[in-house]
Structures are given as structure tokens and as C-alpha cells.
Design a protein around this nucleic acid. Structure first.
Lengths: 344, 344
DNA sequence: TTGAAAGCGCTAACAA
DNA sequence: TTGTTAGCGCTTTCAA
């Protein structure tokens, strides 16, 4: 049968000391003699004792940072996670992940983290209002990644979506594109004021197209590769199809490339630009032009901010990563034939 | 200031009942009158009460299934996770993820799950010995995904790696390849007996090559795209390079394709076959020939097995998914020129 | 430097 | 059907 797990009491008895003494040793607390530390450590090793997180959480801290993630099968979120783990590793804080389930609205995942009494929360692109996050930030050290909030009680890490979008549009304009479509987020539980990064991208797209007197063609779709594929098919079936697409992010861009590749269209006929620079984007067979917003760095920053808050810092800190354009072969100068075809 | 969180005591007081009564209501336990249920529910809603996981875990169950994952930035593991979440959602069990950190050996992640008193564990490709897992299985309902263990105290879900590898090799032979290289796992904390899926793949590769009197060329490398890229470069620099590669899994295959694409080599000169069928493999620009081993289904199976164990089943159950070859454009019939160049 | 003892929030006997 | 009560394993005053 499974032997019952050793408790602090067992260790105390084995070492011939009090429970309090053992507690002090495992927490490396002040006021323990060397001989006591040795005896206790020996007993701990002997019994294979490991403190239970639940019992510790009852009296103090769970020594855990909780991360909420919208989806686990998204390469950009994975980049962020890598950054978070890199920073938290060796800090004495464990990390647990509460991925949003299908039904979930983000709230559920964050609440489950609170129920576990995590010492801090890193919320990645949470689909909850800023007001709700403020409440949460009041109770637990909190860092939000992605949304352009302007909070009082938590920190925020984002990319500079406006600058990134300007880089995208300038790139496409320079390549001669004028009929440029744009994919952006579908209806979403948008916070008030709207802070979704996709909204910033769309805003710049609108602004720069309008500035040049060009008609906009924005399509709000679910943020999935499938949706982007389907929408691109319909885009390319237009009498006068666009010559370029600014996809809201790389997953959408990959879906668009799926459609254009199936039709045998190259970048001279249909250029595609994404956002995020997921790892596969740099693969020579894909060569997706995109914006690198340094997901690992975002995760790393969020982790350090959250540690600061655990240490007592309040107020709010905003951090942004600087976007960089990665020009690859999915975008190219428009061919003269294509250009002529689309002439008014 | 942050108001202090409501406890079961607060709810009891507000509803004018005992703590036990509240406990029964939230656990949907037997023996509660409708009127009491109503009053208590009202008080719970009123106070925004949520039970603390730690306190519940002290007395019984944490209602949590823990998942251990080697890496979070791997598309195949992501497929497995999606399957696990799909199944566990709505079962009343929460899921938490303990991803292996860099230093970790898998043991650390699993132990941290035990420290949290999860009700069950799903271990994905854990780098620990079968002996160690048996110990763990004795203490907590456990399902292992990936390794070909033959356990007594936990369940196992794997693909049929031998059959999958036969499909790969038959495919390459049929396309006329005879000089076939193979990438497999580097030194790893291999259990005893060796149960790693990569070993099974290599075994079949060896067997089938030898059967045909062909020389094997197996290269044990770290399981990263970078390592595969570098190794492929050196492979292609050989005087008499192989015409095909059976990569241990898709990430390695993508690294190999990176190298061959950079050299402008098509599948007629250098065919690449992977394993896993990660989502990007089916992208027309990649078109990676690979083995689908249905990651979501593996996760789904593991989740249902683990629920059975929670319900009291003991012994051990083994489940396998049937592999399917996805032939795409990364593999092709060897060109006559290439064939001639390599003739003995 | 060490130990005794209270109590964190909950569940599960058991009694009423 | 409802309430009383005894802990679960730890941390943390507070005394010794």
C-alpha cells in the first residue's frame, strides 16, 4: 500500500525537535543553530518530506505565480510563456498555468488562480474589462500583457501596436500596394475603453489608408487560421481583389497564405503581412513578413514587474516593447500586370 | 483598501445557518432542504463567496487534475493539451499545468503537482524512469502519455510508433530512396527498460534498412529545430549525401527543411518525412509528409482514463492511437539525376 | 535558540 | 434536516 506522506510533525519527531523548528529550517528563517539545521535537514532527506502547498497557503504564501493564457496552441503566447518561465525559474516561485477553456471568458481562469491563492497573477490578453482587472489588482499583484489599459492597480506590458502597424503599412505602400485589405478581431468582450491591440492596428490602418485617399477594406473575423483562410478565399474571388493584406496577426496571415498558395498566387499578386513573428514565420518555405514584438521579452518583463509588486510596489507601471519589421518573401513589389489589372 | 475575502463562516452567518450547511450546499451533498439551499445560495452570491482550494485540499480533494508538460512551445504537445482540456471541461475538475522548466528533469514538475495535492496527474513524455512513475502511481491516479511503459500502477497512452515508422519507411522506399538518414533523440534520461517513442522509431528504421542491405545513418541530436538544421547542413555537405531523411519528429523535420530550402533543394533531391503532424505541416507552403498520431485524441483518452482512476479503477490500461501517413510534397520520387549521382 | 499553542478555511463524522 | 466539533499541515506570535 502507499505509505502515508510525511508531514512536518513526522520530521519534527524524527529529528527530536518541535514543528516550529522544522518550519524555520525549511523556510530558512532566522534563529536556527547549525546543529539543529543539520539534524532537521537529515530528517527531511530521510523521510523524503515535502511541504504541502495547501497547508502553507492556509497560513501564508503559496509561493506561486499564476499565469492565465487564452489559448495554449498559439505560438505567440508560447513565446510569452517562455519569457515568463525564464525569469521566474530560480526565484523560488513556482508557476502554474490556468489556460482558458473554450467556454471561458477569461474571468473563470483568473478566478481559479485566485481560488488557489497564488501570490501574483500574469494575465495574458485577458478578455475582461479594465474595471474588473482593477478589482483584481486590488487583491493580488497583477500584470496584464497585451491590452492597452491605463490602470491604477496593476502593471501592463504591451507592444507598440501603432508603431508596428505604421511599419507594416509603410512597407506595403513602398512596395506599390494601394488596394490593401485588413483582417481584424471579430466581436470580442471588449473592455471599455477599448484596449485590444487589434483595435490599435485597425485604427492605424484606417488612418493611413484614408490619409492617402484609399478605400479601406476591413474584415472582422474570428482570430483563427480557418477563418482567415475562408475570408481570403472570398477576398480573392472579388472582381477586383486587393493586392495585399495586413492580417491582424500571424495565425491569420498563415491562413491567408494557405489560400493564396493554393491558388498559386505569389507575393507580386497578393502580398501578406502578419503580426507577432511566430517562429515558423522565419522558415524559408513560409517567409512571412511580420512585426516582431518580442514575446519572450514581454513575458520576461511581466515576470519582473510581478515580482516587484510581490515585494510591495504599488501604483502602476507601463512597459512597451519596440516593434521591428521582419521583411520576408510573403510581401513583394506589386507586378505591373497585377497593377494594370486593378487600374480604375 | 481591498476588503477581506468572504469565508464559509461569513456565508453561514449571513444565511443564519451553520458552516456545515453551507459546505453541503456548495458540494451539492445529500441532506439539504430547498429553503436552506436557497438562502445559502443567495448569501453566497451576495458575498461573492468562492471556496479556497487550499482549505478544501486540507480536508479532501482539490478537484484538480495536474498536467506535466516538457515544453510549452511545441505544437504537438499543444495538440495533446487541447484534447485534455476538451475532455476535462465541464467535469468539475480544474486543470493546472506544470510545465517543465529548463533545468528540470520532469521530476520537479511532477513533484510540484503532488505538493499541490492534485487529484490526478497526466504526465506527458516525462523524463523519469518507469520505476519512479510506479511509485507515483501508487500515490495518485496517473496517466502517462508517450513512453512505451508496461506499468502496474498507472495507465499509458501512446501512438503505435513501430507501425508509424513502417509507414514512413515504406513510403520512402516506394519513392525510390535508398540512402536514407535518420535523426533521433540525443542522450536522454532514458528509463529502464528504454521506452522512449524515438527509440521505437529508430529500431524500425534500423530493421528495415538492414533488411534491404542498406547502410544506416542515424544521428542522435537534441530535439530542437536548430540542431536538426545544423545536422542537415552537415548531411548535405557530404560527398555522397542521403536523398531522404526520416526525422524523429516534425520539429526536426522543419529544421531539416529549413536547411534544404536554403540550398534550393527540392524533394526530388532531398525528401524529408517527420512525425506527429503538427498543424503547420499541412500548410501548402510547407507540405510536410509526416505521421499523424492524433495528439488531441491522445489527450482525450488520457483524460478519460484519469477520471476512471479517480473513480477507483486500479490496475493499468494501455491505449494506442493508430498512425496515419500524411503524404505531402516534402517527399517525392527521387530524380534520375540524383539517383545517378549517388550510384555506387 | 527553542518550543507551545493558536488558528488559517474547510470537510466529515456524529449528534441532536 | 441541521448543527457541533474535531481536525487536515502548516506558520507565527509569544514564552521559556
Amino acid at each position: 500500500m502507499a505509505p502515508t506522506r510525511a508531514t512536518i510533525e513526522d520530521v519534527a519527531r524524527a529529528a527530536g525537535v518541535s514543528r516550529a523548528a522544522v518550519s524555520k529550517v525549511i523556510r530558512d528563517a532566522y534563529g536556527v543553530s547549525d546543529s539543529m539545521r543539520e539534524r532537521v535537514s537529515a530528517a527531511i532527506a530521510d523521510l523524503g518530506y515535502r511541504p504541502r502547498v495547501a497547508a502553507r497557503a492556509m497560513r501564508g504564501s503559496s509561493r506561486t505565480v499564476g499565469v492565465q493564457l487564452p489559448r495554449v496552441d498559439n505560438s505567440f503566447f508560447a513565446r510569452i510563456l517562455v519569457g515568463v518561465f525564464d525569469h521566474l525559474e530560480g526565484t523560488g516561485y513556482q508557476t502554474i498555468l490556468a489556460p482558458m477553456t473554450h467556454a471561458a471568458n477569461g474571468k473563470a481562469a483568473l478566478e481559479s488562480l485566485v481560488d488557489r491563492q497564488v501570490d501574483a497573477i500574469i494575465a495574458v490578453a485577458p478578455a475582461v474589462s479594465q474595471t474588473w482587472l482593477e478589482q483584481l489588482g486590488l487583491r493580488v499583484p497583477l500584470v496584464q500583457i497585451g491590452q492597452h489599459d491605463d490602470p491604477e492597480h496593476y502593471d501592463v506590458v504591451t507592444g507598440d501596436d501603432e508603431e508596428g502597424s505604421r511599419l507594416v503599412m509603410a512597407h506595403l505602400f513602398e512596395l506599390g500596394h494601394r488596394r490593401i485589405a485588413h483582417f481584424t478581431v471579430d466581436q470580442r468582450a471588449l473592455s471599455d475603453p477599448p484596449a485590444d491591440p487589434h483595435l490599435a492596428r485597425t485604427r492605424i490602418y484606417d488612418e493611413l489608408m484614408t490619409e492617402r485617399g484609399l478605400p479601406t477594406d476591413t474584415r472582422a473575423i474570428p482570430l483563427t487560421e480557418e477563418a482567415a483562410y475562408a475570408e481570403t478565399i472570398s477576398l480573392l474571388s472579388l472582381a477586383d481583389p486587393p493586392t495585399a493584406l495586413f492580417a491582424g496577426h500571424d495565425e491569420l496571415a498563415l491562413g491567408a497564405l494557405r489560400a493564396s498558395a493554393e491558388r498559386g498566387l505569389g507575393p507580386e499578386e497578393f502580398s501578406v503581412v502578419g503580426y507577432d513573428d511566430v517562429p515558423i514565420a522565419s522558415h524559408p518555405l513560409i517567409g512571412l513578413t511580420t512585426i516582431d514584438q518580442f514575446g519572450e521579452e514581454m513575458g520576461f518583463l511581466a515576470a519582473s514587474l510581478v515580482l516587484e509588486r510581490i515585494s510591495g510596489r504599488t501604483g502602476s507601471v507601463l512597459r512597451q516593447t519596440d516593434p521591428v519589421l521582419r521583411a520576408r518573401r510573403s510581401s513583394a513589389r506589386i507586378s505591373s500586370a497585377t497593377q494594370a489589372a486593378g487600374a480604375d
